[in-house]
Design a protein around this nucleic acid. Structure first.
Lengths: 218, 218
DNA sequence: CACTGTGAACTTATTCACAGCT
DNA sequence: AGCTGTGAATAAGTTCACAGTG
């Protein structure tokens, strides 16, 4: 059972489960059934059980899942129980600074270890305890350190070339905030966060603001 | 053909198409085939054609799609060609301020029209040209203005109650940055942005950092 | 006996493949 | 000739339903 035969959509739900189990642990809860966990997450119990079954048998029949234990298992599966995951950040404009200051990364076990920018006015500045490095030094840095994750917070125009640099440098997981599609080789994982696209798609449901868009159907 | 029989997954791709068409228009491109558009977006041409066919026949056989025209059509379908979409923002901590300062919303035709917080130290302050209002006044404000979209940038603990207030006030599209699952009634659309979850799921692919997670399989 | 784990059934989504236009 | 638009075929994902078990 190699990791690649597990659907990505399943992998993406694991952090959701882990997150909720963390909350449950905080509430002092010992066991939880797929039924109740599903209710809290808006997911069917069968889906949770099926998802977990890709990785093993973690439940106790008649009892459910041990909250802390399952959370640990999931974090181990995700590779999150080793040391902090180091990331580079490219772009320290408004957005990059917000990312750098976001405490959630640190709390989740991710840490920005070096920040880069191409703007001469930024390079050399101190931002949130990081000296901003010239993006020209990024390849050398990646070569040397083998950092495997990167965050892209540069304008759309700059994003493709930045992403190329990251990929060439061996970065295999990239989170991009730039509103542009960029292709990456197989084996490299790129996730985009674009709040505007989320809003745009929700706008569709606000009302039928148009009528007869099918008027030219035969 | 009511809007509700179009799969949500199709609706979510429309902004992606519209975004790319905007870029193409900027490049002065007149027509594009589903083939080439698909290549640029990492989507199959058949998928693009099928998606568009839910709404009408927008292409010219032998030529492809008229770039500006299709973009306008898509934006109209999404309800984005009317006036600016007004939103409330709840939470003006670090994250909320970053959201407020993000120029992409304005560019995309979305505007934060009022900001709220529960922290007495924030209430009354001026943030990015907005006077921060007490979240206690949110219900009254929604009642009066009928603003239909909201952004939630409060800590996880506070998010469920804030989301409830928005829903009660008639907000039907909510973008939440809080790392917590909250259920909303049918008809209300909630999208969550959680960069940590994205990173966590990508971490899985970084390497097989574990071996034998199936050791207790039969 | 209340739950999990899981094949089988079903549903949804994607891709194929080609007729039909321009 | 080169593309779209679309039913039909295929693939992927979800849910059912129930045997098995602590």
């Amino acid at each position: 059972m190699s990791e690649t035969d597990i659907p990505d959509i399943v992998i993406r739900r694991l952090p959701l489960y882990a997150r909720e189990l963390g909350l449950l642990a905080g509430e002092g809860r010992d066991f939880i059934s797929s039924q109740e966990l599903g209710q809290r997450l808006g997911v069917t119990p069968a889906q949770i059980r099926k998802d977990l079954s890709y990785f093993g048998r973690f439940g106790k029949r008649g009892r459910g899942y041990e909250v802390v234990g399952l959370r640990e298992r999931l974090r181990t599966i995700l590779g999150l129980n080793g040391r902090v995951k180091e990331m580079v950040l490219v772009g320290v404009g408004r957005l990059g600074r917000a990312v750098l200051g976001y405490a959630g990364f640190r709390r989740g076990g991710f840490e920005v270890v070096r920040v880069f920018d191409s703007d001469p006015r930024q390079i050399g500045q101190e931002v949130d305890n990081h000296r901003v490095a010239d993006v020209a030094t990024l390849p050398e840095y990646l070569q040397r350190t083998r950092v495997a994750m990167g965050i892209v917070a540069v304008p759309a125009e700059a994003a493709p070339s930045v992403i190329d640099m990251l990929v060439s440098g061996g970065v295999r997981a990239i989170l991009s905030y730039a509103p542009v599609t960029t292709s990456v080789p197989r084996g490299v994982h790129l996730r985009q966060i674009d709040p505007v696209m989320e809003l745009e798609s929700m706008a569709y449901y606000l009302e039928a603001p148009f009528d007869g868009y099918v008027e030219d159907h035969p």
